[in-house]
Every structure is written in structure tokens, then in C-alpha cells.
Simulated scan of single mutants.
Amino acid sequence: MYDVVLLVEQELSETDAQRVVELHQDMPEPVKYHVLVPCHNAEAGVEASISALGTANLYGPGLADQRQELAEAQKAIDSEARDCTGRSVQRLRDLGQQAEGGISHDRPIDALTATVDKVGGQEVIILTRPHIVAEFFHLDWTNSARRHLGVPVLHLLEYDPEKARK
């Protein structure tokens, strides 16, 4: 079995799934895809934003009153991420591939490293929208993954149907 870990920023489109599968069509052994979707932590995001603004002492205590709302927001975020993962996995399965997936609240590169270790991943594919500034300074997921992993890392830009029509 050849295990490929996919770190995706958003749901795999049919076109993206086909592109990924085509990369491995001549593999002599079966391929299994492990789809990983990073999931935003609502509470940590709010707390980080408040701290970054230097207003933690103004709003920090009030954040405790917002915990229930943040928990509900997190449930919605997690639900959408699980749905995104499920649809992405199904698109790969519809192409006759073995696939599984999950979400993570960890930093994307930490989650990717843990997944590669857990499944014995032999290759990583990262699908994102273009992030010009992060890529220029080598702060993007792909460059981070290449620094942390000892497996091939491929970066694909997600298919954009709007740009394709132009």
C-alpha cells in the first residue's frame, strides 16, 4: 500500500480529486489517500485577536460570558469541516480510490506530521489557494512541511472554476 496524505485548505473539487488520482495512476501498488482538513479553533482565534489588539484586559474578562456562543460556533465550524472532509473522501472513492479523512484543531503542519507518522505516509500533497506573500517568504504549509518531513511534498493550487472560464 502506498499512503498519500492530503492536506487541503478547502473541500476537494472533482477536478482536484481527478488531478490527485492521475498523479498515481501508474503506481504498481494500491494507493490510499488520507485527507486532512485543518479546523479553526474559534475560542483561540478570538483570544489571540483580543491579545494582539492589546485589549485583553478590557475584553478578556467578558470572554468568559461568551464561552457558550464560542462553543456553538466551534460545533458549526467542526461540522462544516467534517462535511468538507466527507465530501472530499467521497470524491476520491468515486474515482475508485481507497480514502479516509479527518479534521484537526492542531497547527496544520503539526497535524500533517502526526498523520504522516500515524499512517506511514510516503508522500504528501498540499492543496491550497495561492498565498503569494507566505510563499515568497517560505512561510507557507508546503515549505514548512518540506522542513519537517522526510517524504516528498507536492504543492498543488486548488482548481478555480472562475479563473478557468476566463
Rank of each mutant, 00 (worst) to 15 (best):
E123C: 00
L112W: 06
A145S: 06
A99G: 08
V4K: 01
V35E: 01
K75S: 14
L12M: 04
V5P: 04
A81Y: 09
E11C: 10
I109C: 02
D94I: 03
D160A: 09
A114L: 07
P152H: 06
V133K: 10
A56R: 14
V133R: 10
V37I: 15
H105V: 02
A71R: 14
P28G: 13
N57E: 12
V31Y: 02
G102W: 00
L7K: 01
D140T: 03
D106T: 04
P30D: 13
F137M: 08
V21Y: 03
Q10M: 11
Q122C: 01
R165P: 00
P28C: 03
Q68W: 07
Q74M: 04
I50G: 03
E29I: 15
H138L: 11
L12G: 00
L7H: 04
E123S: 01
I50L: 14
A48E: 12
Q122K: 14
S88M: 07
I126Q: 05
M1F: 09
I125R: 07
V89P: 02
T128I: 05
R107H: 12
E11Q: 15
T55W: 13
R165Y: 06
V37Y: 09
A44S: 10
Q97H: 08
R87P: 05
V35M: 04
L157F: 14
E47Y: 07
F136L: 14
R147F: 05
L112R: 06
V20A: 00
V20K: 00
K163T: 14
W141P: 06
W141E: 03
H138C: 10
V21W: 00
E80V: 13
I132Q: 12
K118F: 06
G86H: 06
V89N: 00
E47C: 03
E14I: 08
